[in-house]
Design a binder for these strands. Structure first.
Lengths: 224, 224, 224, 224
DNA sequence: GATGAATGAGGATTCATTCAT
DNA sequence: TATGAATGAATCCTCATTCAT
C-alpha cells in the first residue's frame, strides 16, 4: 500500500463473471510493480543518496518508464517515505522480538543483546534503511525522515520508560535521542569495519557504552 | 586564498605617498567580496547542504551577481574547499586549546568540560563547519576531511593513552573512534536543538555518556 | 541512430492485430522528432556554424523545448555527429554515382560535368554538410571528416590515375589534393552566390579551372 | 590608430611648459599598448580562432586588464578589424612590390612568381592573417572579413584588368574570386605541409594551376 | 495500466562589456 | 589611464513531473 498514492476508489466492479478475477490481477501486478520500484529505489538511494537519486534512474533500474513510476508514487519523496516505511515495517516484523516485553524485563546486559543484535543484523542486511535515515538536510525529506526516526525513537522511548518508569518525559525523550545517536554512530563504524573480529569488537563496544550509560538510570525492580 | 585571486603583492612601489594605498584598495574590495561570499556560502551550505546549495543562491545571499562569484572562485567546489579550509584552520586552533596537556591531567569530569566545551562552542558558532565536514559529498573535500578526522582521532587517542596508559593499541583506536562517533552524534543533536536549556541538557548528556563510558577505563593516579 | 534512442525492436509480439502498431507509434513520433531536430540543426549550423549554434536555438527552430532535444541527443556534439553521419552517408552515395567508372572513360570536359555536377548539386541541396565538414570544430567529428576527406581524395586519385596512368604516385597525391582544394574553394563561392546565372557562372568557372589544369596531364588515348 | 576607437578630440593642451611632453608620452604609450593588444590578439585568434577567442584571454595575454583593452577598442570585433587591417597593411607594405606595375607587365609565369612568392612568404610568417581571413560564419566578423577580402580582391582584380583589359567587369570579379579561392585553398595545403621539397612542390603546383587558368585570358601585348 | 515523449524551470558556468576608483 | 571588480544575459544540460496515446 503505497504511502500517498491516491486510491482510485472502488475499481469499477467487473462487467461480467468472466472478468471477475481481473481486478485482483491488476492489484497483484500493481504491487509487484511497487515492489520492483521500491527495490530499485533502495539500490539507487544506497548508491547515490536520496538527493542525487533521480526518479528516471529509479524507473530505469526498475525496468519501467518514468510515467509508470508516477502512476504509483506522486513524487520522489513519496518513494522514500514508502521505502522507509516498508523497511521500518520489515525491521519491526523481522525484529519485533527485539523490543518484546519479556526482553525489557531482563537485566540490562541481556536486554541490550536482545535488542541490539537483531537491529544490527538488520541494518547490515538493509543498508538502504541506513541511507534513508541519514536525512542530511534533504529538502522534502525531513518529514518522512522524522516519521521514520520518531517511530524508532518511540520504541526506544517506550523501552526506556519501562526500565526507568519514574523518569521525566523530557528526559526520556532526550535520552532516547542520545541512545539513537550513539546507535547510529556506532552503526557507521560497524558498517565501515569488514566483517570479523574487529567488527564484533565494535558491537561489543557499543553495548559497553550503552550499558554504562543506562545502568545508573535503571530502576532495578526485576525479580524481587 | 581563493581559487583564482592572484595577489600581486608589492605592485611596483608607489610613485608618491598619496597613491600608495590605491592598488591595495582594489584587493581590499575583492577580499571583502570574498568574505561576503564565503559567509553567504556558509549560510546556504548550512541551510541546504553542499549538494543542494546553488551558486546563484550564494551569490544572491551575498548580494552580488553570479558572475562576480565566479571572478573569485572557479566553481562551486572551490567555494566549499576554501570555506572548509578556513574553518578547518580555526577548528585546529580550537582543538589545540581543547587538548592542552594541562587539561589532560585533570580529573575526568573536568577534563571532559575542558575538552568538550570549546569544541562544542566552536561548532555552535560555525555550523557550516559541520555541514561541510559531515560527508557533504564535496569532491575535493574528502582529503581535508580525512585529515581533520584523523587529526582529531590522534588527539583523542593521545588523551586516552594518557588516561589509560596500559590499554592495548587496538583498543585505544577503537575507543577513540567510539568517542568521536558519540561526539559527532551528540553534536548533531546539540546543533538541531535551539540554544537554551534543552541544548545545555544535551551537552550535559554527552558528558554523562562519555564520563560513564570512560570512567572505568581511567587509571586514577592523580589523587593526592 | 541517435545517441540515446534505444529501439526495443519486437516489443513482445502484439496481443491482437489492432494493437500491433501502437508501440511502433511511439517510436514513430520520436523519429519524427529526431528528423525535425536534425533539420533544425542543419538550418542553425548552416546559419551560424557549429560553435555558435545553441542547442536552445535548435530546439526552438524545431518547435520543441530544450529538454526534448536532450531526450534524443545527449549533447550538442551528438547532434552534429548524427547529422554529419547522415549527410555523409548520402554524400557517399552521390560520390558513388559521380565517380562511376563509365564516367571516367569520357573525354575530360564531359568527365568534369559528370563528376562535378552531382557533387555540386548535393552540396547545394545540403548546405549543412558543408558547414559541418568545413572544419567546424566538432570534437568527435574530426574522424568522420577525415574519413570522408580521404575517401574523396582516394576517388579523385583513382580517377586521376586513370586519366594519367604514367604519373608518379607523389604527383598523383599532390594533384588530387590540389583538385580537392580547388573544388572546396569554388564550392564556397558557389554556395555564397544566390542561385541563378551567377552561380552557374561560378560552376562553369570551376570547370574551366580544372579543365585547363588537367588537360595537359591527360594521356589522350580515348580518341578513335 | 585603432579602427573605431573614439578619438577624444584635442587632448586638452598642456597646462604648463613642464608638462608639454606628457601628451606625446601618453600617445606613445597608447600605441605601445595597442601593439601589445594586437599581438596578443593575433596569438589568441591563431590558437583558438576568432569566435572562441575571449577578450579576457586577449587582455591576459597582453598582460593588461580587460578594462584597458576596452579603452582602446570598443569591442571584440574592432580588435579583429584593426588586426586584420594592420596585417593587410603590412602585407601591402612588405609586399607592395608584389603588385608593382612593372611586375604586371612581365610575362605571366614571371608575374606569378613575383606576386605569389612574397604573398606566400608573408602568410607563412603571419598565420594570424590567415586565421582572420577564414571568416567561418563569425557573427559580426563578416563585415571586416569582407573589408579585408575585398581589399585583396581589389588588388587581384586590378592586376587582372591590366592583363586582360577588355574583360567584362562581372567576369573580372568572378575570376578574381576564383583566383583568391584557389590561392587560399593552396595556402591551406602549403601551410599544412612541412617546410621542404614537398611544400615547394605545392607552391609550384599552385603556380601551374593559375598559369593554365589565366594564360588563355591574357591579352599578350607585352613587348611587340 | 504502461509507455516514452514533452515540458520548462533551474543549475553551473562563461564572457563581452561597464564602472568605480 | 589602468585596474580589476561587477554585471547579467546566454550557454549547455538535468530532472521532476505531466500528457497523449
Amino acid at each position: 500500500m503505497p504511502g500517498t498514492a491516491k486510491d482510485k476508489s472502488a475499481p469499477t466492479a467487473a462487467k461480467s463473471d468472466t472478468e471477475a478475477a481481473a481486478p485482483r490481477r491488476r492489484q497483484a501486478r500493481g504491487e509487484r510493480r511497487i515492489s520492483q520500484l521500491l527495490a530499485a529505489a533502495a539500490g539507487v538511494f544506497c548508491r547515490t543518496g536520496y538527493a542525487a537519486a533521480s526518479t528516471n534512474a529509479i524507473a530505469r533500474e526498475a525496468g519501467v518508464s518514468p510515467g509508470t513510476l508516477y502512476q504509483f508514487f506522486p513524487n520522489k519523496e513519496a518513494i522514500a517515505i514508502e521505502l522507509g516505511g516498508q523497511l521500518l515495517h520489515r525491521a519491526q516484523e523481522t525484529h519485533g522480538q527485539a523490543f518484546l516485553p519479556e526482553n525489557l524485563r531482563r537485566p540490562l546486559p541481556e536486554l541490550l543483546d536482545a535488542v541490539l543484535d537483531p537491529l544490527i543484523a538488520f541494518n547490515c542486511e538493509n543498508p538502504a534503511f541506513w541511507a534513508l535515515m541519514h536525512g542530511s538536510g534533504v529538502p522534502g525529506m525531513t518529514q518522512e525522515h522524522e516519521e521514520l526516526h520518531s517511530a524508532m525513537r518511540a520504541r526506544v522511548r517506550h523501552a526506556l520508560s519501562t526500565l526507568s518508569p519514574e523518569a521525566a518525559p523530557a528526559d526520556l525523550t532526550r535520552v532516547s535521542n542520545m541512545i539513537l545517536g550513539i546507535f547510529k554512530a556506532s552503526l557507521d563504524l560497524i558498517l565501515a569495519t569488514p566483517e570479523g573480529a574487529e567488527r564484533d569488537a565494535y558491537v561489543a563496544e557499543l553495548k559497553t557504552v550503552l550499558l554504562r550509560y543506562l545502568e545508573p538510570m535503571v530502576t532495578t525492580t526485576h525479580s524481587p
